[in-house]
Design a protein around this nucleic acid. Structure first.
Length: 385
DNA sequence: CTAGGGTTAG
């Protein structure tokens, strides 16, 4: 509709207008519409290319983004990428954790004289961090000319994601000390680090500091980290109290699932039942509660109970991930049969993969590799007990 | 006219 209005007024090929339109459509998730406008515009400048590349990048469509980038470079009227173009390309590679492409983009940034731009720099820090190359991230980070919260956050998240919780927490402290104000995303990073490290007191202190010191209202993501943290420490009661502080319509299955897992691990029957009910309420269509419980039973070698969860799941025909796969455990006399069925098990359907892995392990079959998925097969194993 | 950092667990 915006497009038509713009066309009526004769603006459809005025670059700033069509560029903004393309952005609007990509933001709304309407990539094909955005692409159509982009293709229609007669004159494309660096902004036009950057906007459409960013649109594909944000959807995680790396191939398309890079194909457009190549096309852009071959386009005679517009050959030079700018900091926006590079930052978008780096972000798509950052999520795919592809270090090689990232390095090439780094080289390109240097060649284009854009390596010191704050936007390019933070995108580079993120790319190296996501790729697990913290030493490279550190180099880019240390040579910064000017502080900005996004680069600091990218570093903190990088450490947190790679299990280096201590460094993540230290960096967060340094950042606050340097007078940089952390924001919501920074707190997600540092709270995740606390969660991985089991640093309950640190975590609680930071959650508290969010509102008291920094004037930030914790969101469900922040509470979720702490619920998980408290739950693992066996502090179920406190975790429940924390959940009560989350806005009612913000409470989702994730936070209840964390609690459910914690309760089940400690055989806390009452809160466990409640948590399971809440997960079901929040995600009646999902497999969340069943998967959490089946995983837990399987990890304890309680195959019969795990099988029951699977059975319920099967009866309810719950949707799991892409919804084209299923795992079943059927109790036999002395063993369990595991089979994977469906057209093709979705590789991203990690909950099923994790469950299979546990079952293989429990059955003394060793590890389950991704090759085991995507095949239709049935196997029977004997479990001693 | 365009931008970079985002949480559970298996």
């Amino acid at each position: 509709m915006f497009r038509r209005a713009a066309a009526r007024r004769g603006f459809s090929h005025a670059r700033p207008v069509s560029n903004s339109l393309v952005k609007l459509y990509t933001r709304a998730g309407l990539l094909s519409a955005a692409d159509a406008i982009f293709r229609e515009s007669l004159i494309k400048d660096v902004v036009s290319w950057s906007v459409i590349i960013s649109g594909y990048a944000q959807e995680g469509l790396a191939e398309e983004a890079f194909a457009l980038f190549a096309e852009m470079l071959h386009h005679s009227s517009c050959s030079r990428p700018n900091e926006f173009t590079l930052a978008s390309l780096l972000s798509v590679r950052a999520s795919a954790a592809a270090l090689d492409t990232g390095r090439q983009l780094h080289a390109l940034a240097v060649a284009a004289g854009l390596e010191h731009h704050v936007m390019v720099r933070s995108a580079l820090v993120d790319m190296y961090g996501k790729s697990g190359s913290m030493s490279n991230a550190d180099v880019v980070f240390l040579h910064r000319m000017k502080d900005d919260v996004i680069s600091w956050t990218a570093m903190i998240v990088g450490y947190a994601e790679h299990g280096r919780s201590k460094e993540a927490i230290e960096l967060f402290e340094q950042m606050c000390h340097a007078g940089i104000k952390p924001d919501h995303v920074t707190f997600i990073g540092v709270l995740t680090a606390c969660c991985h490290a089991g640093e309950v007191e640190h975590g609680l202190r930071y959650l508290n500091a969010m509102s008291t010191t920094y004037g930030l209202e914790p969101a469900k993501e922040h509470y979720g980290c702490i619920v998980d943290l408290l739950g693992r420490a066996g502090r179920i009661r406190e975790a429940e109290e924390l959940i009560a502080r989350i806005d009612h319509d913000e409470r989702d299955g994730v936070v209840w699932t964390s609690l459910l897992r914690a309760c089940a691990a400690r055989a806390e029957e009452e809160p466990r039942k409640k948590a399971a009910e809440r997960v079901m309420e929040a995600e009646p269509w999902g497999a969340g509660a069943h998967v959490a419980m089946a995983n837990l039973f399987a990890s304890k070698g309680q195959w019969h109970e795990a099988a029951q969860e699977q059975h319920v799941m099967k009866q309810k025909e719950v949707v799991k991930g892409a919804g084209c796969s299923s795992v079943e455990v059927g109790g036999k006399d002395r063993g369990i049969g595991v089979f994977v069925s469906g057209d093709r098990t979705h590789p991203q359907d990690n909950s099923i993969y994790g469950m299979l892995e546990l079952m293989y392990y429990g059955a003394g079959l060793g590890r389950c590799t991704p090759d085991h998925l995507g095949l239709e097969y049935e196997l029977e194993v004997t479990v001693n007990s």
